[in-house]
């Protein structure tokens, strides 16, 4: 079961940038790519807990600001020789509004 709730407008997230979204105790990072796709990951690098929302977005990946781990926005998987994974959440855009599936948060919280 999906439970879509609107979280922000697309234009509120800078292109090739991110916003931090607080959902109770859970920090989520919303990313907007160069082609205006939006992805949501838990805002916590699996390496040392760095805030991924503060990283540089490139292609469909973000690089953690603390130690340069590169994380795939779609799957949440760490790329390259490093290993690890961060929870990813379902997002969709409708009429310029970004919706997050809060049902998908349950497992991560």
């Amino acid at each position: 079961m999906n439970d879509w709730i609107p979280v922000t407008k697309l234009e509120e997230i800078p292109r090739l940038g991110a916003r931090k979204l607080q959902a109770g105790d859970l920090d989520i990072a919303l990313f907007r790519t160069g082609s205006d796709e939006v992805f949501a990951l838990r805002d916590r690098c699996p390496h040392r807990g760095g805030p991924l929302s503060q990283g540089i977005v490139h292609g469909e990946a973000v690089t953690c600001p603390l130690h340069n781990w590169k994380i795939d926005l779609q799957s949440g998987e760490v790329q390259g020789p490093d290993q690890g994974c961060v929870s990813s959440f379902a997002v969709r855009i409708e009429d310029g509004v970004v919706y997050l599936d809060i049902a998908s948060l349950e497992s991560a919280a």
């Binding site: 709730i5 997230i13 916003r19 979204l21 607080q22």
Partner: peptide, 16 residues
């Protein structure tokens, strides 16, 4: 300002 202001689900819910 967006750089320094986090979004919040609770706020969105309250507004909707």
């Amino acid at each position: 300002i967006h750089e320094f202001t986090p979004l919040s689900i609770d706020r969105m819910r309250a507004a909707s």
